[in-house]
């Protein structure tokens, strides 16, 4: 079984073979959420899995989603044409500026998986979703005050 990642050369499709190279996100979605369940299985003690599958199903509050997309829209340069930094900017805004709980529910859960499972491990297997743990804490903290004032 190859663990190698295959990337396509044409079009917009990233291709990954099965067996894990696609990252922990996919694995978690597949084998914790899907697959056959038979009542004869005994309960075994697990490492944080149960919490994690619940987290993965939580939908991010829509207000947070709105604020995140508003921010991305604000940073958009509507008059530029294919400037190289725009994508990066939007990405860093959404990942850095509105990080933490406003990140996608699944991504959030995956980061958690990352924390649980990669403690003391090397992070060299190309998981793209859980490589950004070093982001600064969310900046946006003004909301409660704003609410009180109104």
């Amino acid at each position: 079984m190859t663990m190698a990642t295959q990337r396509s050369t044409a079009g917009q499709v990233e291709r990954y073979t099965g067996g894990g190279p696609s990252g922990l996100a996919e694995v978690v979605e597949l084998i914790l959420d899907k697959g056959l369940v038979i009542d004869v299985f005994v309960r075994v003690s697990l490492v944080g899995i149960e919490i994690l599958t619940i987290d993965a199903r939580i939908v991010v509050a829509s207000v947070d989603t709105f604020l995140r997309f508003a921010e991305a829209t604000n940073r958009l340069d509507l008059y530029a044409h294919g400037g190289k930094d725009l994508g990066d900017l939007a990405e860093s805004v959404t990942r850095g500026g509105a990080k933490g709980k406003t990140s996608g529910a699944l991504e959030g859960a995956v980061e958690k998986v990352g924390e649980v499972f990669t403690k003391g491990r090397r992070r060299d297997d190309g998981d793209e979703e859980d490589d950004d743990d070093d982001e600064p804490a969310p900046r946006r903290r003004a909301r409660p005050r704003a609410r009180e004032r109104r």
């Binding site: 099965g18 922990l24 694995v27 697990l46 490492v47």
Partner: peptide, 18 residues
């Protein structure tokens, strides 16, 4: 040890996909 490490998850999927 309890099951559920990253390696356990990957092994489960790796075996099945193969």
């Amino acid at each position: 040890r309890p099951l559920g490490t990253r390696d356990d998850l990957l092994a489960h999927e790796r075996v099945l996909d193969a």
